[in-house]
């Protein structure tokens, strides 16, 4: 009996150790490095909060903060909303079900580098598909990646296309909603929109909340490599998000302390937004319940 339980603990151990060594430990240690100046060539120098004061007065950091907020504010609602829309459109089992789901999920499994290679062609103003189609109608497009708004929209589009994970979760959640509630709404004469507002949305709210929280992190993560390869954070920092700046400072300029500090600020910011969001969600739930 105890032997069996001990055996269970042994089975859990690799994951616990791996997580401790590669995730929890590094996260804590990085937080420590955030208060130092460190170039990997000489030992780290403790600098305390001066690192953060310098970052705050750093134009590039402020610009990256703004770029991050803009891109997240556009990408997260579109990713979660798009996933929800697809899930609601596709939740009934029909022909082509498997094929459609696979197609919607496919962009999420394509390696970052392949995505970047393809998007360079997509936004090519002369030889790319958008340029060719718009030119056929006499319009044409300019140098998309040289335009701050165009570059940001490209990054957002890449992020939105990889909404597969959220879509699948919402699809499963929608299929688990009880049909009788919908039948009842139907007999009460509720239209599609009323049905969505009164039945679907409240029931899916917890899942949507969790997805939104995760998307705050993932939406930036999935575009990191394509952005690095396509715009390198440009033009004029329009797509230089905090992860990109952390990489650049830490690994290109060998200011590892700065890189750690930026990462810590990003984490705190994410945590803050998640906390606020869950509080709002709870309040909204209570309001709906009463």
């Amino acid at each position: 009996m105890t032997g069996y339980r001990a055996g269970l603990r042994w089975l859990l151990l690799p994951w616990l150790l791996g997580t401790l060594l590669l995730v929890v430990g590094p996260a804590l240690i990085t937080a420590g490095f955030a208060f130092t100046r460190y170039d990997a060539l000489s030992p780290p120098q403790l600098a305390g909060f001066a690192v953060f004061r310098d970052l705050w007065s750093d134009v590039e950091f402020r610009r990256a903060l703004v770029s991050t907020l803009v891109i997240v504010a556009l990408a997260v609602p579109l990713r979660v909303g798009g996933g929800l829309l697809l899930a609601l459109l596709l939740h009934r089992r029909r022909r082509l079900d498997a094929a459609t789901r696979a197609a919607a999920y496919a962009p999420s499994v394509v390696p970052d580098v392949a995505i970047a290679l393809v998007w360079l062609w997509v936004v090519n103003p002369v030889y790319g598909p958008i340029g060719l189609i718009t030119s056929a109608f006499g319009a044409g497009i300019g140098a998309v990646l040289l335009d701050p708004a165009g570059a940001r929209l490209t990054v957002v589009a890449i992020s939105v296309l990889s909404l597969g994970e959220g879509f699948l979760v919402l699809l499963a959640a929608r299929r688990e909603l009880p049909q009788p509630l919908y039948d009842l709404a139907r007999t009460e004469g509720a239209g599609v929109l009323t049905e969505f507002r009164l039945v679907t949305l409240p029931l899916l709210a917890p899942v949507l909340g969790l997805l939104t929280a995760r998307d705050l992190v993932v939406s930036l993560q999935v575009v990191m490599v394509p952005t690095l390869l396509l715009t390198n954070g440009g033009p004029l920092g329009a797509t230089k998000t905090l992860p990109l700046l952390a990489y650049e400072r830490g690994f290109r300029e060998l200011e590892l302390g700065d890189g750690a500090a930026i990462a810590l600020l990003l984490t705190l910011l994410t945590g803050l937004v998640v906390a606020v969001q869950f509080r709002l969600l709870r309040r909204w739930n209570r309001a709906v319940a009463t």
């Binding site: 590669l22 590094p26 996260a27 937080a31 993560q221 990489y247 750690a260 990462a263 990003l266």
Partner: peptide
Amino acid sequence: LVPLPMLWVARF
């Protein structure tokens, strides 16, 4: 919910 950049420096 932990952003990846939080792991980079220490892993390096």
